[in-house]
C-alpha cells in the first residue's frame, strides 16, 4: 500500500495536469469561437489593440535593439576564433528573425500583457464585475476574452516583425560603428541571406505566442481565487504558464519549420 503511494500521487498529479490542459484548451476554443461570432465589441477591440500592440512597442523596441547589438558583438568575438568575423550580418539576421525576435517579443508580451490582462480580469472577478457583466446580458468571454485574444493574434506578429527589424538594426549599428563593417555590404548580406520561410516562421511564431499570452491572461484571470491573494496568484500563474508555453511552442514550431 505505502509502496504504491508515491505512484498514486504521481497519477493524481498527472490527472490534475491533464484536466488543466483540457480546461485551457476548451477555454481557448471558446475564446476563438466568441471572436468570430457576433455581437462584436469594437470599442473593446480597439482598446485591446492599443494596449497589446501600440503600447508594447517601446518595450519591444528596446529589447530588440539591445539584443541585436549584443548578438553582433558576440558573433564577432566568437567568429574571430576561427576567422569567421564576416558572418555577423547573416547570423544576426537569422538569429533575430528565426529565434530571438519571436521569443523575446513573446516573453515581453507575457510579462507586460499577460500579467495586465490576468490582474485586470482577476480584479474584475473578485469585485463581482464579471457577475455584473452577466446580469447585464453581456458574455464575459465575448466582452473580455475575445477582444484581447483577437488583438494579440493581430498585433503580436506585427510586434515580432518590428522587433526583427529593430534587432537587425541594433546589430547593424554596432557592426558599422564599432566593428568596422561596411554599411551597404552589411545590409546586402542581411537581405540576401534571409529566406521567405524565415520571415513566415517568425510571424507564425508571433501569432502563436500572442494567442498563448492572451489566453493565459484571460484564463487565469477568470479562474482567480478570492481577494488580493487570489489576484496575485492568478497574475503570477498566468505569466509563468505563458512564458513556459511560449518557450515550449517555440521549440515545437522551430522543429516544424526547420528540421529537415
Amino acid at each position: 500500500m505505502s509502496a504504491l503511494a508515491p505512484l498514486g500521487r504521481l497519477g493524481r498529479a498527472v490527472l490534475v495536469a491533464l484536466a488543466h490542459v483540457g480546461r485551457v484548451t476548451l477555454f481557448a476554443l471558446s475564446a476563438l469561437g466568441h471572436m468570430v461570432r457576433p455581437p462584436f465589441y469594437p470599442r473593446e477591440i480597439g482598446h485591446a489593440l492599443m494596449n497589446v500592440g501600440w503600447l508594447s512597442l517601446p518595450v519591444v523596441g528596446l529589447t530588440a535593439i539591445f539584443t541585436g547589438g549584443a548578438l553582433a558583438l558576440q558573433i564577432y568575438a566568437g567568429g574571430a576564433r576561427f576567422n569567421a568575423e564576416a558572418v555577423v550580418p547573416q547570423i544576426v539576421a537569422i538569429g533575430m528573425v528565426r529565434e530571438l525576435g519571436p521569443v523575446l517579443v513573446g516573453l515581453m508580451i507575457a510579462a507586460r500583457v499577460t500579467s495586465s490582462i490576468a490582474a485586470e480580469i482577476a480584479t474584475m472577478k473578485v469585485t463581482e464585475q464579471i457577475d455584473a457583466l452577466v446580469t447585464l446580458s453581456t458574455h464575459p468571454m465575448k466582452y473580455l476574452a475575445a477582444p484581447r485574444v483577437l488583438a494579440a493574434l493581430i498585433t503580436v506578429p506585427l510586434l515580432v516583425g518590428v522587433g526583427d527589424v529593430i534587432g537587425i538594426a541594433g546589430g547593424y549599428a554596432v557592426a558599422v560603428q564599432n566593428l568596422g563593417f561596411n554599411p551597404a555590404a552589411y545590409l546586402k548580406n542581411t537581405v540576401d541571406f534571409l529566406e521567405p520561410l524565415d520571415l513566415i516562421s517568425s510571424l507564425v511564431k508571433g501569432a502563436a505566442f500572442g494567442l498563448i499570452a492572451a489566453v493565459m491572461g484571460c484564463y487565469f484571470g477568470m479562474n482567480s481565487g478570492r481577494g488580493a491573494q487570489g489576484v496575485g496568484r492568478a497574475t503570477k500563474g498566468s505569466v509563468e504558464a505563458a512564458a513556459v508555453l511560449i518557450l515550449a511552442a517555440n521549440f515545437i514550431l522551430t522543429g516544424v519549420f526547420f528540421s529537415v
Binding site: 482598446h47 474584475m124 469585485t127 463581482e128 464585475q129 457577475d131 455584473a132 452577466v134 446580469t135 446580458s137
Partner: peptide, 21 residues
C-alpha cells in the same frame, strides 16, 4: 433567450461592481 431572461433583471451588487474602465 438567456439574454432576454437576464434583461428582466436589475442587480445592485454589494460593492457596486461598477466597471472601473
Amino acid at each position: 433567450e438567456r439574454d432576454a431572461f437576464l434583461a428582466r433583471f436589475g442587480m445592485l451588487f454589494q460593492g457596486g461592481a461598477l466597471f472601473d474602465s
